[in-house]
Design a protein around this nucleic acid. Sequence first.
RNA 1: AGUCGUUUAGCUCAGUUGGUUAGAGCAUCUCCCUUACAAGGAGAGGGUCUGGGGUUCGAAUCCCUAAACGACUACCA
Length: 879
Amino acid sequence: MDKAYSPEIHDQKWQKLWDDKQIANPDVSHALHPSPLNEKFVLMMPPPNVTGVLHQGHALMLTLEDTLTRWERMRGKKALYLPGTDHASIAVQMQVVKHLASKKIEYKSLGREGFLKECWKWIEEYRERIFSQIRALGVSCDWSRVKFTMDEDLNRAVNHAFVQLYKKGSIYRAQKLVNWCPKSLTVLSDLEVIFEEREGSIWHIRYPLKDDPSQGIIVATTRPETMLGDTAVAVHPDDERYKKLIGKKLLLPFTNREIPVLADSFVDQSFGSGAVKITPAHDFADFDVGQRHGLALINIFTPDAKIVAGLPAEAASFAGLDRFEARKKITALLEDRGLLVKEEKHKNRVGMSERGNVPVEPYLSYQWFCKMDGMAKAVVEDLQKEEFRFVPHEFHNQFMRWMENIRDWCVSRQLWWGHAIPAYHCEKCAHVEVSEEVVSKCPKCSSSMTRDTDVLDTWFSSALWPFSTLGWPEKTQDMKEFYPTQVLETGFDILFFWVARMLMMGKEFTGVVPFKNVYMHPLVRDEDGQKMSKTKGNVIDPLEIIQSVGADSLRMTLNALCVQGRDLRLSVERIEGYRNFINKIWNASKFVMMENSQVSLKDLSSEMKEDLPTQWILGQLERCAYQVNRSWEEFRMQEASEAIYHFFWNDFCDWFLEISKTKRKEYQPVLVHVLTESLKLLHPLCPHVSEELWHELGSKGTDEFLALQKFPEGKNLDEISGFLFLKDWIGALRTLRNESRVPLSKVIPVYVELTSAEEKLLKQNLPWVESLSKAKFVFAQASEAPHSIVTLSSFEKGRTITLKVPMSELVNTEEEIQRIQKDLSNLNQYVSGLKSKLSNDSFVSRAPAKVVETEKAKLLEVEEKIKKLDENLKQLESL
RNA sequence: AGUCGUUUAGCUCAGUUGGUUAGAGCAUCUCCCUUACAAGGAGAGGGUCUGGGGUUCGAAUCCCUAAACGACUACCA
């Protein structure tokens, strides 16, 4: 065998074999690995952007999902992990536009059809990249069922869903104030607006009274340029300052529009000047005020946020000015005319368009909306009935709050790349027909119809993902067999974008919520807790890691660092630590395979079956497997990987392998058994190295896979106490040796006086205890010569065991005295605590008898230890 | 502003329903190339569990309060 595991050789070998034999195809795996369990495990991969590149967020998601899937598959469930990609409407469109621009092509010049061709070309070029990167991580998803949200069948599902919702009255078209991106020229949903704290200004502007221009009212605004669209000024009805102005007319500068002063209790008297300019067409709050008071909506912007032409009076000259240029010009003019009272610094939250990276403009437009409240209610009821749950539970409340305040979803986008809305507009009578079939003639007036030019929000097709991928709306075999799914695993950043909408659409169209568990994984950050970003240069590229240390190391690390309710801090050092663990697995296996490994537990002699270390390690294996199963059942990823790490490294390698060296051949069946079972436990975490070693160990053919072996169930056992005592003895002797600087080459004699039970335990295990402690036990009283002592607990309650080592064997008396003094001071502190506890009447009378008993036994034992150490110390000090 | 979360060893974090002298990994220090592994082994040091109150025989754990950090939500023009 090689000196170390070589990921560059083995990773790809197994990835290819798993793919070739389709172990991830549930029909194949279930046939190969039949199980009495008639259960399924279904998990839909959250589809990454089809043109995307693998980042740590993906790596974490895929690792966790694959770990759970491999585990459930090995447990005998019919496991489907379905991969796919998302068409990422706006993101991909922006990429392609940019790409064309780099070739000096204005995308609009290609026309819609021509542009879509370019999009498909772009996708064909990049779609395999993310798939190969997913494979590189060793993900066992079923490639025979891979889906893309723009596949024909998924497009049919989208159209079907849209039409159904329209027929029901859940989808409607309306003119509303929406979040408009002036750069990408499309509407954005509320969720796509990212708020940023910005240093800005607030301007106090005087609007003159119509009847007496020397008088006026001062309004405060952060957006002076929108004053061109003002249709009122609002004050609080109780505001003494302005009461007498209510109902009066103002003359709006630049436009000479007459606007009223009106009263509305939404105004906060203490903020700004207490008077608010109302621009119903360009501010969400103002829109509502406008609705209440019947104000006109005056749009002053073109779609790319320039001042429109045709505004009255002086405002007409602003036409074509960008919104920020207009702001400068207007504030300058106001100042010239003495209307600008003051400009103050002001922090405000600006809504930014994620894709365009420009401030979003509240903009009036016709859009398609989907009613949400009814669907949300149904999902909330299911959550309350515990039809599904959130892990970690914190997201439960966050989700509920959002669902209870949900607003209608704007589903249309003014883009070309995406699912075209299946609606047709009559060119003559303006009739709208929504249909899955292409409609070319108006059913009302027989004139020709044209298709709606909008596409659907990317998340609309994603919302159908758990069932559109299974063939819905057709009643397919997959749909019957695999829906609903068990787990939805994703990041919390798309809880509302995606998870909530899947739940609602799933409930709406299939009658059941699409998954039982929503597991939200943490955010991956760098070692300083910073978000990873290219501009910061702190990105740990998963592909580079896979190349340098292998996929298994990365998978182990991500599992080991993944705890609930906390971000995950990743660093190269941590990954190297788990690379070392992979290496440890490799080397331990190498050790086991030095002997004939074609044996099993059946070959164990009856004598060896009674052997304490054998019983101990088999018990530890059961305990570990039990822990791992329980942890994964509750998505406690760190706990599971830690249990395996600890068992394999500390129990198996540090103790059992060392013990086995004393009777190598006799122990071989145990070694083989424990290693084999460990590889099964390890497989979901590090599939490549475990698969490789499992084949090495058993000379298995390429038709058999560790991936399809039965996962150990485990038992909830206690650690064998006899073994624990001996471990303690060895530990104590090792400490003594280290601190007294006795070289390892020197075997030290240890004098012990034991009860018969203690002596029996020790004698039965003498060879390995002596080998690991490099000591020689002498079952006799020590001579009167000075000796050092170590005190230990016995399995007989309250009893102290004393190990005596002749001082002549130890090198340094001073250090030995110090060691004992330190022990004593610890014990004395402990004993005084115990004493005060036990002399406390209320403790003795109120604490459970069991607790009091153990405290008493502890006291007895510790006092005994102190007594012996004291005697010993005196003897040493007299030297 | 509101809601929620976090605060435990130098660092990153565990710590289930209150009950052994609060644990792990990494880092540090000491010793050791013992034929699976120096990417290793054996030891050691290191903590007023953020501060302050309370409940209790007993609190890292439950309650109140303060602070720091973080996330989410919101129409403060």
